[in-house]
Design a protein around this nucleic acid. Structure first.
Length: 780
RNA sequence: GAACUCGUAGCUCAGUUGGUUAGAGCGCUACGUUGACAUCGUAGAGGUCAGUGGUUCGAGUCCACUCGAGUUCACCA
């Protein structure tokens, strides 16, 4: 044995050995549950974790390395003899991936508008396939004991089928509806988002005081004035009482027009002048006010009366903005302000006004509230079931107060907008009848020319020059008006239908990950492993993912998708700062593995970590953990070097002096076991570290040198610690274990290691090949 | 505005249902290369457990308030 532990020499070989022995497949004959020591036990209990599927297209970062918590639990339960499955997979990560792909297109001087949606989808598919092996390799480098034979991808046909089916069921139960609401829309990414995906940034923005006939009002968005449908004041505001219910004549940039003055509690009389312009197509609050007062401000000429959209989905002014049509809205704002000033309609400007604006979490573009027909899921019945499951303790949340946060989310959740205007995802099984004349389409013709407009202008049956199938083939996007007739069906319901171009929110499919993966693998996996045992993930996606899995799981299976939720914290740098590329303080897990070994990385991340709390990690932590591997190595080395010569001389009664030592060994085992059962992973690692180093090495090995502890007892101590350490540091423990076996110091798995080993160590049998995965039984 | 979390050694953090002298890593001081390990060992310095009050035989741990740090949600014409 080397004087130092050289992780480079062992890790790959050990992982290959595990794979060769099919060690991570619960159906394999090598499972601990199938070893003789478990023969007389009851049927093994199932223990299942689903790997939170990483983005198929991304290399791993140090956050993913926190999956080590899962491997600890999985290996622990496998060693206990449970029927253990850790199921791997990857996610298509809709917007993230399309965003990255579009950046790549940009470098090639292309954009998403150059391709029809099928072609674009195929291109992204190929691109993702090319990159997806990277993540898998990295998970293996970390030593994760995932059952690769059950690997799943979110867009696998069988998974998509279930996701689509679920949507159809929801619709049949009247839990899906299509509605024209304002959505948070990113004009750069070209899609709407749910409110969870929006960032808020504090920003200084000029507040413009503008003359509206006899009134003056304050706004930060003068360019939206062409979408005004009313002016509002507070009902109790004496200053404006006489105007309420009246129409006022407003002088404007495009001639005079009339606006109704309405009264609504929403208006804060103390803000600005106490007068607000109501622009329902571009402001969430205005939209609500407008809905409340629709009867008063009706304008029957509009398609949707009163909802005047002046900004389009690319961020440009629409025809309603007259001379400003086509301008990007920032530019339009400048021009409008300039022109208002010229006309003497600008009263004053407050340059120091501060407010928060919504930005796209993906590309930082300012989010525009825009009216768009979208599909929504009614969440009330789903959240109620989830709350009930939480209250009844069917699901336990481990992690500093996050159970309360989940409660809060579930109580306040709004209906879930699941439509996304992107290509990379599961296309919604919604079919619009083309008999409705007003479907807006964008498509590429046979010469790849981009054509946009109302469908009936193009169709041959209305004397246009395209067949429907040509339009469908070259389709980029479609916008059916809110009144459009539609049918929900996995396949086309007939010739005259066009399929919705929107895809599902990524989280709509990931919310179904627990049952889709288990339903589409081995036949009985669902019965065998659902509900899964533990969901382990970062607290940052609690509302996005964990909450929705709970909702969807309860809906679809009438049972919780998991019994325990362990939330790990974020990894921070040594100063406690968040890691980010811009701060240049990120840690590449692969570099750490190269330098210190996977075991050291795993231990450093997990030791003294606490559920739900962030953890700061740096070079020093990796060195310390690497030193621990070396300590373990050398303890083993010492025992091996002394093995043969001491073992012959330990025939006579050393039992009494070993007694206390063995008791302590057992109490350590119990302590660690208890801590792991209680999900105190970080504490278990710390206890293990201290007991091994400061008790076993510093005290016991020293005592053994003077014969105060017998060699067999010491060997037993080593084997116990190897087993206890194994879930945390699988490579080095397995390496040592294999060495001890070769040296015939330790018997394989089913030997009762909790009792002192037989004295004649060298005579013991070695393992057969099928028992090579010997480090598999937890000490008892 | 609201909720949640945190405040323990110079730094980063553990501390399990309240229970002896409050722990680890890194750093620091002194000594030590005796046959597992210098990626080491021995010894040591360093803490009013943010503050105040309360419950208790007993509080770092439970309760109330105060101060400080952070996260999230809501609102913002």
């Amino acid at each position: 044995m080397d004087k130092r532990y050289q992780h480079q020499d062992h890790e790959q070989k050990i992982y290959d050995l595990w794979q060769k022995n099919n060690a991570f497949n619960p159906d394999s004959e090598n499972q601990p549950a199938k070893q003789p020591r478990y023969k007389n036990k009851n049927a093994p209990k199932p223990f299942c974790i689903l790997l939170p599927p990483p983005n198929a297209n991304d290399p791993l970062h140090v956050g993913h390395a926190m999956y080590v918590v899962e491997d600890v639990l999985i290996r622990y339960h496998r060693m206990l003899g449970d029927d253990t499955l850790w199921l791997p997979g990857t996610d298509h990560a809709g917007i993230e991936t399309q965003f990255v792909f579009e950046k790549k297109l940009q470098k090639e001087n292309k954009s998403r508008f150059d391709f029809d949606r099928q072609t674009l989808y195929q291109m992204i598919w190929d691109y993702v396939q090319k990159n997806s092996d990277v993540a898998v390799d990295q998970l293996k480098k970390l030593g994760f004991s995932l059952d690769w034979s059950r690997f799943k991808f979110m867009l696998d046909e069988d998974i998509v089928k279930i996701v689509v089916q679920t949507f159809q069921e929801l619709a049949e139960k009247n839990l899906v509806y299509r509605d024209m609401k304002l959505v948070n829309y990113c004009t750069h990414c070209g899609t709407g988002f749910s409110e969870l995906e929006i960032d808020h940034v504090e920003k200084k923005a000029p507040l413009y005081y503008i003359k509206y006939g006899p009134l003056t009002l304050a706004t930060t968005r003068p360019e939206t004035k062409f979408g005004d449908t009313a002016v509002a004041v507070h009902p109790d505001d004496k200053r404006y009482q006489k105007y309420v219910g009246q129409e006022i004549e407003v002088e404007d940039l495009m001639g005079n027009f009339k606006l109704k003055v309405i009264a609504d509690e929403y208006v804060d009389p103390k803000f600005g002048t106490g007068v607000v312009k109501i622009t329902p197509a571009h402001d969430f609050n205005d939209f609500e006010v407008w809905q409340r007062h629709q009867d008063e401000i009706l304008n029957p000429k509009d398609e949707i009366p009163g909802l005047k959209q002046v900004i389009d989905y690319r961020g440009h002014m629409t025809a309603l903005a007259g001379p400003y049509e086509g301008m990007y809205l920032q530019k339009a704002r400048q021009e409008v302000v300039k022109d208002l000033q010229k006309k003497g309609l600008l009263v004053k400007v407050d340059e120091n006004y501060q407010h928060s604006i919504s930005t796209c979490y993906r590309c930082d573009t300012i989010i525009e509230p825009l009216p768009l027909p979208q599909f929504f899921i009614k969440v009330k019945s789903l959240t109620q079931k989830a709350l009930q499951a939480l209250d009844e303790g069917k699901v336990k949340i481990h992690g500093a107060g996050h159970d309360k946060i989940l409660h809060h989310w579930l109580k306040n959740l709004k209906d879930w907008n699941i439509s996304r205007q992107i290509v990379w995802g599961i296309r919604m099984p919604v079919w619009y009848s083309t008999d409705h004349p007003d479907i807006h389409v964008v498509f590429l013709d046979k010469n790849n020319k981009r054509i946009e407009g109302a469908l009936n202008e193009f169709l041959d049956r209305y004397e246009g020059k395209y067949a429907l199938k040509d339009i469908a083939g070259g389709l980029q996007e479609l916008r059916a008006p809110i009144q459009a007739q539609y049918i929900i069906s996995p396949a086309s319901p007939g010739e005259n239908y066009l399929q919705e171009t929107d895809t599902f929110d990524t989280w709509f499919s990931s919310a179904q990950w627990p049952y889709t993966t288990l339903m589409t693998n081995q036949l009985n996996d669902f019965d065998r492993f659902y509900p899964t045992s533990v969901m382990e993930t970062g607290y940052d996606i609690l509302p996005f993912w964990v909450m929705r899995m709970l909702m969807m799981g309860l809906y679809k299976t009438n049972d919780v998708p998991f019994r325990d939720v362990y939330l790990h914290g974020l990894i921070r740098d040594t100063k406690g700062q968040k890691m980010s590329k811009s701060k240049n303080n990120t840690i590449d897990p692969l570099e750490v593995i190269d330098q210190y070994g996977a075991d050291a990385l795993r231990m450093a991340l997990v030791i003294r970590s606490s559920a739900g709390l962030d953890k700061s990690v740096g070079e020093g932590d990796f060195i310390a953990a690497r030193n621990l591997t070396n300590k373990l190595w050398n303890a083993a080395r010492f025992i091996l070097l002394n093995g043969a010569e001491v073992s012959n001389s330990t025939k006579s009664g050393k039992e009494t002096q070993d007694k206390k030592y063995l008791e302590k060994l057992e109490s350590i085992t119990q302590e660690i076991t208890q801590q792991l059962n209680d999900f105190k992973i970080g504490l278990a690692a710390e206890t293990l570290y201290n007991e091994f180093w400061h008790w076993f090495c510093d005290e016991c090995i020293e005592k053994s040198k003077t014969g105060k502890i017998s060699q067999p007892a010491l060997v037993q101590g080593l084997s116990t610690f190897l087993k206890l350490f194994h879930p945390f540091m699988p490579f080095i423990t397995e390496t040592i274990w294999q060495t001890l076996q070769r040296e015939k110091l330790i018997v394989v798995g089913d030997q009762p290691l909790s009792q002192p080993l037989p004295q004649s160590l060298p005579q013991l049998l070695t393992a057969s090949d099928s028992q090579l995965i010997a480090l598999s039984a937890w000490p008892q």
